[in-house]
Amino acid sequence: MSKLEIAPVKKLLAVFAHPDDESFICGGTLAKYASEGVEITLVSATRGEMGRRMGNPPYLNRESMAAARELELKQACESLGIQHLHFFDIRDKTVEFIEEDILISRIEEFIRDLNPEVVLTFHEKLGGHPDHCAIGKATTAAFRRVAGNDKALYFITFGEEMKRPERFGYSRSDVFKIDVRAHLEAKLASFRAHRCQTEIDEWVWLPDHEALQRFGGHEYFLRGNTGAIARDLHDLFLSAPG
């Protein structure tokens, strides 16, 4: 195949709030697309230095937490196949207090520079944590400023709660169900990389075959831009057939 025939690399940008968001919520999906050659860039707004878990037994403190969680996130990225990692250096638990236009502009710059086909972030109301909701709101605003309908924005969701999207004001046509069963080993490795956050969870450290049984086989995403080209509900990148 000549250079002219090589398909362009697909790109995915994930904009989250804390180290471990990428693993605990959508690690299987990120591992899946990385294994398929998608170039993945992760932005973490904070280094998670205000996290309540400090190891088991505790071995971290507020001064050492940020450096430890940065290292853990880098290791998790290696496990999942995430190629590029950036931090916004916002203090944990203060994302909602950052001037909104500044935060939107920073994310907008990433979207312009990378030109990703897919952007993942939190829903601004269903994120469950003020930092999650704030980074989701800013990312959504940045995406809508610069991305066209050929790009796709998705909101990550927790576990299998989107099996019944009507509870949240959405329909089944808004929910994307990604099969991650072939990538659960990578997801487990990323959980274990976030050591200070998972040491207290005994199941994470069980023998692999037992720990893997705790994972669901699918991860769910909400459609973030309703005006986008119709998509296959089982693939974040594919257009719908027909």
Rank of each mutant, 00 (worst) to 15 (best):
H209E: 14
S79K: 14
I229G: 00
K151I: 00
E219L: 06
F168L: 10
G37V: 06
E78P: 04
D174F: 09
I104P: 08
M65Q: 13
K74T: 00
R112G: 01
E117F: 03
I82C: 10
G224V: 00
A141N: 10
F237Q: 13
E185H: 13
L212E: 09
A182V: 00
K32E: 04
A17Y: 07
G148P: 02
D20N: 14
R172C: 04
N149K: 11
A31S: 14
I200H: 09
P130D: 03
R167M: 12
E78D: 14
A68V: 10
A211E: 08
K11E: 10
A186K: 14
H123I: 03
V119E: 04
E109L: 07
I107Q: 08
R144A: 04
F97I: 12
I98L: 13
P8Q: 08
I98C: 14
T46V: 07
I102P: 00
C77G: 11
N225Y: 14
D235T: 03
T41D: 03
R106H: 09
G216T: 12
P207L: 04
C26R: 01
E49S: 09
I90S: 02
I98W: 10
K137Y: 01
L153G: 02
L153N: 01
F237D: 13
Y154R: 11
M54C: 11
D131G: 07
K93M: 12
I102E: 01
S105G: 08
G28Y: 06
E99L: 08
L80F: 09
Q75N: 15
S171N: 06
T157N: 02
F122Y: 14
I6P: 00
R91G: 10
G217I: 04
I229V: 15
V118Q: 05
T29K: 07
S105K: 12
I25Q: 13
G48D: 07
L71F: 09
